[in-house]
């Protein structure tokens, strides 16, 4: 199989993740978009590992490390989301303006 097949798949998943991050209003759904983007990167790593037959298996090992980092990230992010819900009563990103730059004209 040509190498660009998995690369194209990961590109499409990454773009869908970008759309999810930009277009969704619920904070948990934005996090799902981030997960899609991280998975797209993992597909790239594994595909390059198989294509270049890395003796150190750098691609697969880095994919494992990315999965671990993603798990840590989602745990922290959901703790922050729950904290935001306790303070504001909603997790609608369009209505969370307490960190907005109010000096801008």
């Amino acid at each position: 199989m040509p190498l660009w097949w998995p690369l194209l798949l990961s590109t499409l998943l990454f773009a869908i993740g970008v759309y999810g991050v930009l277009a969704r209003r619920n904070a948990v759904l934005v996090l799902m978009g981030v997960e899609l983007m991280l998975n797209a990167v993992n597909i790239n790593l594994v595909a390059f590992d198989a294509a270049f037959r890395d003796v150190l298996h750098g691609g697969q090992t880095l994919a494992l490390f990315t999965i671990v980092i993603a798990a840590a990230e989602i745990g922290l992010a959901l703790a922050i989301v729950l904290l935001v819900f306790r303070h504001h009563g909603h997790i609608d990103l369009d209505r969370l303006r307490s960190l907005a730059d109010r000096d801008a004209s």
Binding site: I43, V46, A50, A63
Partner: peptide, 10 residues
């Protein structure tokens, strides 16, 4: 897809 790309453990 990982299984197809020979990354069983991943």
């Amino acid at each position: 897809v990982f299984l197809v790309l020979a990354a069983e453990f991943v």
